[in-house]
């Protein structure tokens, strides 16, 4: 086993364990922080695969953005003093069944597919290629996505504003 493998297994272990805590923990803040480690692990796996840009983007968007937003939401909407933030895990059996079917399907796909093995040498950097792909080949889609996000933002702002006026 090389260093690469050791790191991979460590990171993978981190992802699996923390994801298990996310699902299993009854304390929602703990779950959220376990999610943080899941994200970190996923970013690590991306980086190990040579996709450094995607890995860092994972950190930037999910850890720096979405997770913080999530925590903000949890901390602000709940009664954080006196009452514990806990939730019950309902529907355990149905979820196990569904997850089991899905897992079986994934394993089937994994074992049956004829994987194309990539060239083991890492590309030096992915940023340049990525930028070129996004802004040359898919520039229209990229722009449309940007506009959709902008519309969503404006819409959210408008909704929040109306709410204020009523008060």
């Amino acid at each position: 086993m090389e260093l690469y493998d050791i790191i991979f297994y460590l990171v993978a272990l981190m992802v699996v364990v923390s994801a298990a805590i996310v699902v299993g923990s009854k304390n929602i803040v703990r779950a959220a922080y376990s999610l943080l480690f899941t994200f970190l692990g996923v970013a690590g796996i991306y980086i190990l695969l040579g996709a450094d840009f995607i890995g860092v983007t994972q950190l930037m968007v999910y850890v720096g953005g979405i997770l913080i937003l999530l925590l903000f939401g949890i901390m602000l909407t709940n009664k954080v003093y006196s009452v514990d933030i806990r939730r019950e895990n309902a529907y355990i059996i149905p979820s196990i069944v569904i997850v089991g079917i899905f897992a079986a399907f994934l394993i089937f796909v994994m074992t049956e597919t004829n994987w194309v093995t990539a060239d083991p040498t890492f590309p030096n950097t992915t940023v340049f290629e990525l930028g070129k792909t996004l802004l040359v080949h898919y520039s229209i889609i990229f722009e449309i996505l940007a506009i959709v996000l902008l519309i969503a933002l404006i819409g959210a702002a408008t909704l929040a504003r109306n709410d204020n006026k009523e008060r």
Partner: peptide, 23 residues
């Protein structure tokens, strides 16, 4: 090759830590 982007991204972790400390 993406040094500055990486630095910006990981400094987001600090926020998570401070938020956690406060909570």
């Amino acid at each position: 090759a993406i040094g500055i982007y990486y630095v910006t991204a990981v400094s987001g972790l600090v926020v998570a830590g401070l938020l956690l400390a406060g909570w």
